[in-house]
Computed example of a mutant assay.
Amino acid sequence: MSGVGWVGDERVRPRATAVACSGPAPLGTGPADLVFVAERPGTGLGAGLAGLSGPDPGDGLCAAMNGAVPHAKIRAAGHPTPLWSVPAGDGRSAYVGAAKGVWLYAVLWPAAAGYLLADQVFLHDLAESMPSELVFGAPSPHLCPTA
């Protein structure tokens, strides 16, 4: 794990959470970064990281879903969750779906790192329980605030 972040303030519960992971790219092309974002509709964190215009996946997701099977399937909080590839900003790939009434984004750098989602991916809701040990690596450059 290379980062954890959220969007919100002390008056309201977080509207979005993000978890970053780093490791080797699946095609042996160097390092890869993956950021999972779970957010309430209209928040914009996932869309911003993916390089999409607007706060939600919008037309890109509608076009991707139009008669297509999901491009990736993960398990979120024990439930199968389909994700569709949406057009993303330069140098990255982005997949979007919904789970438990929130948008779920997987944004990967470099773009070829999207192949990581071909493996079985299991997401655990940390609001339900915390693993006994989390391993942290170097901070993700994708969750650093910009000036």
Rank of each mutant, 00 (worst) to 15 (best):
V4G: 10
N66S: 15
L143S: 10
A32T: 03
P110S: 05
P87Q: 04
A99W: 03
V96L: 02
P131Y: 02
G5T: 11
T29C: 07
G91A: 04
D9L: 04
G51F: 01
C21T: 00
A50V: 08
R13I: 05
A127Y: 03
S132V: 14
F36L: 15
S132F: 06
C62R: 15
V96I: 03
Y115E: 14
A88V: 09
V69W: 12
S140V: 08
W109Q: 04
Y95N: 03
K100D: 15
G42P: 09
M1K: 11
P26I: 10
L83V: 12
C21H: 07
V4D: 10
F122P: 08
L104H: 01
A47F: 04
Q120N: 13
P55T: 10
A127C: 10
G48S: 13
F36M: 11
S132Q: 14
G3T: 07
G89C: 06
A98T: 14
I74H: 03
D125Y: 03
W6D: 12
P55D: 07
I74D: 05
G60K: 05
M65K: 13
G101M: 09
L52S: 02
W103E: 06
D125A: 06
F136I: 06
E10A: 14
L45N: 07
T81M: 05
G5V: 07
W109Y: 06
H71R: 06
T81Q: 01
V37L: 00
V96E: 01
V37H: 02
A16Q: 12
E133A: 15
C62D: 12
D56I: 03
I74W: 04
P131V: 09
G114M: 02
E133F: 07
G114F: 01
V12D: 15
A77W: 03
S22M: 09
W84N: 02
P80L: 10
S22C: 11
V35D: 03
G91N: 04
G48K: 08
L123N: 01
A147N: 11
S22Y: 02
H142V: 06
R75A: 15
S132P: 13
A106Y: 02
W6M: 10
A50C: 11
M1H: 13
H142G: 00
P141I: 05
D119H: 13
V69C: 11
P87C: 00
G51I: 00
A127W: 06
D90K: 13
F122G: 09
S22T: 11
Q120M: 12
H124V: 15
D56G: 10
L117Y: 03
A112L: 08
G97Y: 04
G42L: 09
G54K: 11
G30E: 05
T81N: 01
